[in-house]
């Protein structure tokens, strides 16, 4: 139900002026590992309101084209919350920014200028934004998800 409410809230103002609508929903889950009696580890996803440093978070972005026409050049950008260090992108094709969203590229190609002026390769911990760009239009009625992980600092 939460998704629907959010979805409607986003759609309502846009539908008045736009021919097609793409809704974007953000969810954050915490992955909690629990060792079972037989020694196996099960990972459960919870939708928390509270977390602690070190918690593994799963970010799920869900988009849905509810309009009558395809949406082209679809780009999703998620700034990393300040208290979360980027972990990994689950869906391929992500590009990253380590400078607050100015320059995007594959993480291996990004560099960080230290205060001393020396440049070093960027790490996952430097990521400030993650972005996906879909190469194909989203047909009317279609939806999809983009997921990445982070850790509470």
């Amino acid at each position: 139900m939460k998704f629907l409410i959010a979805f409607l809230a986003l759609i309502a103002p846009a539908s008045a002026v736009l021919g097609n609508q793409v809704a974007l929903d953000s969810q954050v889950f915490v992955e909690r590992s629990a060792e079972q009696a037989d020694g196996s580890v099960t990972v459960t996803l919870e939708e928390p309101t509270r977390v602690v440093p070190g918690d593994n978070l799963l970010f799920v972005l869900t988009y849905q084209n509810t309009g009558a026409e395809a949406a082209e050049n679809f780009v999703v950008t998620n700034p990393m919350p300040e208290a979360v260090v980027f972990g990994e992108a689950i869906d391929s094709g992500a590009v990253y920014s380590v400078d607050g969203g100015t320059v995007f590229g594959p993480l291996a190609e990004l560099r960080i200028a230290e205060e001393s002026g020396v440049e070093r390769p960027a790490h996952a911990a430097d990521v400030t934004h993650i972005r996906w760009t879909l190469t194909e239009p989203i047909p009317a009625g279609e939806s999809g998800q983009l997921k990445f992980r982070g850790i509470v600092r």
């Binding site: 780009v75 950008t77 998620n78 919350p81």
Partner: peptide, 29 residues
């Protein structure tokens, strides 16, 4: 607080439209 909001943009017949997602708010215990 940890607040997460994603932004999407797409083209609608030459017009670029941006939409924000809902904001998920968490508190660090």
């Amino acid at each position: 607080p940890i607040e997460n909001t994603a932004t999407a943009s797409y083209d609608d017949g030459g017009t670029t439209i941006t939409v924000d997602s809902n904001t998920v708010s968490l508190i660090v215990d």
